[in-house]
C-alpha cells in the first residue's frame, strides 16, 4: 500500500512540477497586469530546444538555452503588448502559434539534422535521427529520501528541487519586498504607480520576461525530466492549463504549489484509471479529465470571486498609456 501511495505521489510531483514552474512566472506577469497567453508556445519551444541542445551539448546547456529562448520570446510579447499597447489576448495567441509552428519546424527530422550538425559537427550519425534524449538523472537527498511516503519528494531531478526553492522565494519577493510591492501596484493601479515614480512599462516588461523564462524552464523540464521523446506539440495544452491554475491559485505562488500538485494528481489518476478496469472506458475519454478539471476550476473561482472579490489584479489585460 505504501509503495502504491509513494509511486502515485512521486508521479504527481513529477507532473505537477510542469504546472508549478509555468505558473510561478505567469503569476508575476499577471500581477503586473500582463496576461501571457504565449505560455503554451514558449513551453513547447523550451521542450524542442532542450531536445536539440541536449543531444548537441548536454543537459545544462539545454536548460539554459530554453530559459533564454523563453525570455526572448516573451520579450516579443512585452514589446507588443506593453510598449505598443496591442491586445494581449491576440498577441499572446500569436506567440503560442509561433512557438508551436517554430518548434515543430526546428525539431522535425530534416531541419534538426542541419541544426545538430551545425552545433556539433562531431556528433555520431546515430544521434542525428533519434526522437529522444537522455532524461535528467534523479538526485537522492541523503537521509530525507529514505523516509516513508514523503521520501518521494526527495528522489527527484534537479529542476524539481529548483521548483521547491523557487515557489517560496517568489512568494517572499512578491509579498514581502519593495520590488514585489512595485510589481503588484503596477498591476493594481498603473496610473498611481506611475505617479509614485515607478516605471510601469519597465516593470511590466521585466515581469513578462520572468514569465517567459519560467515557461522555458517548464518546457525544458517537461521534456528532460518527464517525457524525453519528441513529438510535435507535446505540451498538449499544458500551458493553458497552467494559465487556469494561476487563476485558481488567486495569483499566489504558495497556493500555486497546491494547485499544481492537484492538477498533477488529476493527470496521474487518469493514468492509474487506465491501468484498472476503467481502462476499457477508453484512454481518450480519460484524457479529457485535466481539461475538464481546468474548466471546473475556472468556474469555481469565478463563483467565489463574485462572493468574496478575490484579488484579481485590477488592470490585468489592460494596456497602460499615459494619454488616458
Amino acid at each position: 500500500m505504501i509503495e502504491w501511495i509513494e509511486s502515485v505521489l512521486g508521479l504527481t510531483i513529477q507532473v505537477g512540477t510542469v504546472y508549478l514552474l509555468a505558473s510561478l512566472g505567469e503569476i508575476y506577469a499577471e500581477r503586473s497586469g500582463v496576461l501571457n497567453l504565449g505560455l503554451e508556445g514558449i513551453m513547447v519551444m523550451g521542450a524542442a530546444l532542450s531536445f536539440i541542445f541536449t543531444l548537441a551539448y548536454g543537459h545544462l546547456a539545454a536548460i539554459l538555452i530554453s530559459v533564454i529562448a523563453g525570455i526572448l520570446m516573451s520579450l516579443i510579447l512585452a514589446v507588443m503588448a506593453v510598449y505598443m499597447r496591442l491586445n494581449q489576448t491576440v498577441t499572446g495567441l500569436a506567440l503560442t502559434m509561433l512557438g508551436l509552428g517554430l518548434s515543430g519546424f526546428l525539431a522535425s527530422p530534416e531541419v534538426r539534422k542541419v541544426i545538430l550538425l551545425a552545433l556539433n559537427p562531431s556528433l555520431p550519425e546515430s544521434l542525428l535521427a533519434i526522437q529522444e534524449a537522455p532524461k535528467l538523472p534523479e538526485i537522492h537527498v541523503p537521509l530525507l529520501s529514505g523516509l516513508p511516503i514523503i521520501g518521494c519528494f526527495f528522489r527527484q531531478n534537479v529542476l524539481v528541487y529548483v521548483s521547491y526553492i523557487a515557489a517560496p522565494l517568489m512568494w517572499f519577493i512578491l509579498f514581502k519586498t519593495r520590488p514585489g510591492l512595485s510589481l503588484r501596484s503596477v498591476g493594481e493601479n498603473p496610473a498611481a504607480a506611475d505617479a509614485m515614480g515607478i516605471d510601469v512599462f519597465r516593470v511590466r516588461c521585466l515581469a513578462t520576461m520572468i514569465s517567459g523564462g519560467f515557461a522555458g524552464l517548464a518546457g525544458a523540464y517537461l521534456f528532460l525530466g518527464f517525457q524525453p521523446f519528441w513529438q510535435e506539440g507535446l505540451t498538449a495544452g499544458k500551458g493553458f492549463i497552467a494559465l487556469s491554475l494561476v487563476i485558481l491559485s488567486t495569483w499566489n505562488p504558495l497556493r500555486a504549489i497546491l494547485g499544481a500538485y492537484l492538477f498533477g494528481g488529476v493527470e496521474v489518476i487518469q493514468y492509474r484509471l487506465q491501468l484498472f478496469g476503467l481502462g476499457a472506458l477508453s484512454p481518450y475519454l480519460l484524457a479529457m479529465l485535466p481539461y475538464l478539471a481546468a474548466i471546473a476550476a475556472l468556474v469555481a473561482v469565478s463563483i467565489e470571486s463574485v462572493r468574496k472579490r478575490i484579488g484579481v489584479p485590477a488592470s490585468l489585460g489592460i494596456p497602460y498609456s499615459r494619454e488616458e
Binding site: M97, L98, L100, G101, G104, F105, S108, E232
Partner: peptide, 8 residues
C-alpha cells in the same frame, strides 16, 4: 510545420 510557422 513550416506552413504553420509562416502563418504565425
Amino acid at each position: 510545420a513550416a506552413a504553420q510557422m509562416i502563418q504565425a
